[in-house]
Simulated scan of single mutants.
Amino acid sequence: MVVLLSTNDRFPGWTLLATLLCLAGAGLYCPTLFMAVIQTKDLFQMGGRQLSTDFDLLVEIIKWASVGLSAWMGLMSLVFLCVGCMAKNVTDVRSSRGYDSNVRGGICNGFTIVITYLLFLLWLGVSCFSVLPVFLFYLTAHVAVTIMGTSGGCINLKQFDQLFLLYVLALVGALLVTLSMVHFLMAQAANFVHIRESREALKYEDTKKKEEQELNIIMNSRQNLAGNW
């Protein structure tokens, strides 16, 4: 039995929710990690300690990688939203674009699922990486851990509670983006199933039209023959 899909529900609500989560997570992750890395660098420079060139380079890489990654995720979330809207449109079996449009929509949606899954793995790794500084500060929250500088001074990590908050917010942002990837995957998988069902419905409609046309041709031929006799 072929079920015709509704033409009224064309707006991808789940994809919109995933987009909002991704934008919120990326918008939270970028500035908090950027500021946290800068303050971490200041922490290691206290007490007159000189930082190596490699450490400075690592700090710069992490700072601008967070900016680039967050901007890229914001752009990708909008792309996924557009793909979700197109997927809703191609599932309309009454669409004048027909079977070819449905096939192209299915291929595009399948390719998007692969990209989303890779991004999910990427942000899962980012989330795991973001746990490390939070775990370190949690361990030192009630312990007077100090770092000796070259001048003989000490740095007490307890005075950097604002830095701990920044790393926590960065972790929350990374988790929000990871969660948004899960929502994108669920929405895209549902769209993939709907596209396949609508493709079957289109095949059924095409077959039915061809059978009706053949039947009309046969009936017209019989009527013409009867008229000749």
Rank of each mutant, 00 (worst) to 15 (best):
V2G: 05
V2A: 05
L4Y: 10
S6L: 06
N8P: 00
D9E: 14
D9R: 12
R10K: 11
L16W: 06
T19Q: 03
A24W: 10
G27D: 04
G27S: 15
G27Y: 01
L28D: 08
Y29S: 13
C30K: 06
P31S: 08
T32H: 11
A36Y: 07
V37E: 09
V37Y: 04
F44S: 01
G48P: 07
F55P: 07
L58T: 14
L58W: 12
V59Y: 10
I62P: 02
I62V: 15
W64L: 08
A65D: 15
A65G: 15
M73P: 01
M73V: 09
L75A: 13
L78P: 05
V83D: 00
G84R: 02
G84M: 02
G84D: 04
C85W: 09
A87Y: 00
V93Y: 05
R97V: 10
G98T: 09
D100N: 00
D100W: 00
S101F: 07
N102S: 14
V103P: 00
G106H: 03
I107R: 07
T112F: 02
T112R: 01
T116G: 04
L119V: 01
F120T: 03
L121F: 14
L122A: 13
S127G: 13
S127R: 00
S130D: 13
V131T: 14
L132R: 03
V134T: 15
F135M: 02
F137Q: 06
L139M: 11
A141L: 06
H142D: 15
V143D: 08
V143W: 06
T146M: 02
I147N: 04
M148E: 12
G152H: 10
G152P: 00
G152W: 06
G152A: 00
C154I: 06
I155D: 03
I155V: 15
L157D: 01
L157Q: 00
K158T: 02
K158D: 04
F160D: 11
L163G: 04
L163D: 02
L165H: 12
L166S: 04
V168S: 10
L169K: 14
A170S: 15
A174Q: 05
V177M: 06
T178I: 03
L179D: 08
L179Y: 08
V182M: 09
V182Y: 10
H183D: 09
F184Y: 09
A190E: 07
H194F: 00
I195K: 01
I195M: 12
R196W: 10
S198K: 02
R199Y: 12
K203L: 05
Y204W: 15
Y204R: 07
Y204P: 03
Y204F: 15
D206R: 06
T207W: 05
T207G: 06
T207D: 07
K208D: 15
K209T: 13
K210T: 07
E211T: 03
E212L: 13
E212G: 01
Q213G: 12
I217W: 08
I218D: 08
I218K: 11
N220W: 02
R222G: 00
R222V: 07
